[in-house]
Design a protein around this nucleic acid. Structure first.
Lengths: 121, 121
DNA sequence: TTTATTATTCTACAAATGTAGAGGTAAAAT
DNA sequence: ATTTTACCTCTACATTTGTAGAATAATAAA
């Protein structure tokens, strides 16, 4: 089972906040914000799909993610990336670093991460 | 306008082949292959959406992509990545290099790409 | 306590998606 | 010339998605 585009967007807010009431989630949206009922519907669907859980606080709910961002990403987005880059991660990685405009500092940071990984091999 | 998941999959075959008849595209699918009419429907929808063009060869068509893979990727997939990584490309990049299992050679290749980019800054 | 706020479920509905049969035609194989 | 193959359009239909109003209940503010 997977999330739709809009559900993913909502999920990203939830991952960011970690725990949140509807109100908090609504606030995360830029104008024009969706109707509360829209978000409520989304939350219900996501709960049904097993991606979101909640604890009751009185009568209302504090929602939280039931799947980790990185797990979700690996499972769903990596597949997409593979599709695009004929299964070559490095092909993708080099594309990505070329396309996105990383600052010098970010690039250096990234290089040091790569160096560490090279050491491990 | 964007492509749906299955349309994206078909598109990835088209990007790979560059030019292809229906038959060639069908062959790209693993078993169990979809019905020809399914692929035909998809191709029609994608043509209507402006992602695919074709030249007539007698009565049948040789299809080709009307958008470049990298352009499509930047426009549609980067948004998703941003969603996940709170807009930090480097955060994503480091996640990605950690998660995907790149070989030593690939990592070194990637490092040299990054080095080149650092030089440009 | 009357009112305003907030959250939730139900219901609704158009558009998009996934999937493919039916029917027709042109081209290729026999 | 007849059969087979490939391909295209139309039609169909169940699901999923995007979006939100109506109704309801609980809570907080006045």
């Amino acid at each position: 089972m997977k999330l739709s585009k809009t559900e993913e967007e909502l999920m990203s807010h939830l991952w960011k906040l970690e725990k949140a009431f509807m109100k908090d989630l609504l606030e995360e949206y830029p104008e024009p914000k969706p109707a509360t009922t829209t978000v409520a519907t989304l939350l219900k669907r996501m709960t049904d799909k097993g991606f979101v859980g909640y604890e009751l606080f009185g009568k209302s709910r504090r929602y939280f993610p039931l799947v980790e961002k990185t797990a979700y990403f690996s499972k769903h987005v990596n597949g997409l990336i593979k599709n695009f880059f004929n299964d070559s991660s490095s092909q993708f990685a080099s594309f990505f670093t070329k396309e996105t405009d990383l600052s010098k500092k970010e690039l250096e940071e990234l290089r040091s991460i790569i160096d560490q990984q090279i050491k491990k091999k």
